[in-house]
Simulated scan of single mutants.
Amino acid sequence: MADDTDRPESHEEIMWATHQALCTHGYADLTMRKIAAESSKSHSLLAYHYNTKDELIAAYLDFLTDLLHADLEETDGADPLERLEGFLDYFTVGTEVYPERLQVAFLELQMVALRNEELREKMAEHDTENFGLLAGIIDDGIEQEVFRADIDSEAYAKFILLSVMGASEHETTTGIEGLTDDVRALLRTDVVEALLIDSSGDSDSPFS
């Protein structure tokens, strides 16, 4: 994550401009000029601080993680189940922060990352941060004695988040409606239920 001293003035405006440009044009047609057109900043200012659009995309991925960090900080001390649900809302296609057009752009980014080592590393860092944030919510639930103490929070976090992200990606690419809703419903009734100390189901978890 970039240090604040390395960020240009109006960093947040530039990041939201990148967000809007990605949603509008996708990754393939994205240019620094198109990003600048979504903000009050000039193309030359963006080019001064970011050598390439991939460098700007890397900063944008950090920005998304920062947004999620900020949202989670506001819910510190809240019910762990509500925090978990709110976390998953962030990765569900169709929200203001994560519209379907952004999902399409992220799918493009994944394809580019197959042959772009720097971008692949940044996307891996982004995912790892998100896994850690969700594992932290589960750990808080364990500390509050809402979730069982014998579970592997990191394994659960990866499984839950990848399930929702995978469903969202497939729903976007295939157009099959309801995939994400179905997966989330199953996560609630089977996987998340298995986290609870007072779960009436089988307490033996394959992720323990």
Rank of each mutant, 00 (worst) to 15 (best):
S200C: 04
N116P: 01
A155P: 01
L64N: 07
L114K: 12
L22S: 04
E82F: 12
L109V: 02
D182F: 11
M165S: 08
E154K: 05
T18E: 11
G94N: 06
D71E: 15
L84Q: 08
P99D: 02
T24K: 12
L119Q: 00
A105R: 07
D202C: 02
A59H: 08
A58V: 13
A2D: 12
I14E: 08
E121K: 11
L84I: 14
E143W: 07
D62W: 04
T92N: 09
A78H: 13
L46H: 10
M123F: 09
F147W: 01
L119M: 05
S153A: 14
E193M: 03
G77L: 05
G201L: 04
L187K: 02
N130Y: 07
D89S: 06
A47M: 12
E108V: 07
L61V: 01
T128A: 13
V112W: 00
S39D: 01
L56P: 09
R120E: 12
M123C: 00
R115G: 14
M15H: 00
D204W: 10
K122A: 12
H11G: 03
L119G: 00
T52H: 09
H126W: 08
F207Y: 08
V146H: 03
L81E: 14
D140P: 06
D182T: 14
L196D: 06
T174S: 14
D71S: 14
L134C: 01
A2P: 06
F147V: 03
D190H: 11
A17S: 13
E143C: 05
S40M: 13
E125H: 13
E129M: 14
A17I: 08
L161I: 07
E145H: 13
Q20K: 15
R120S: 10
I137K: 06
T31D: 04
Q144M: 09
L161M: 13
D6Y: 11
D152F: 05
S44I: 15
S44R: 12
D62C: 09
A21F: 10
H19D: 13
S168F: 00
L161N: 04
D190E: 15
D4M: 13
L30V: 07
I137A: 09
G178F: 05
A113H: 02
M111K: 15
D204Y: 10
G132L: 06
V97N: 09
L107E: 11
K122H: 11
V97W: 08
S199I: 06
S208M: 09
Y27A: 04
Y60G: 04
A185Y: 10
E193N: 10
K122M: 10
K53D: 03
R7N: 03
E129S: 10
D198G: 01
T24L: 09
G141I: 08
R148N: 03
A28H: 15
D54C: 05
R7S: 06
D140Y: 03
H69E: 15
L186E: 12
M15G: 01
M1R: 14
D62I: 07
Y60N: 08
T189K: 11
T31C: 09
L84G: 00
F159T: 12
E171T: 09
L107F: 03
T24W: 04
T92R: 15
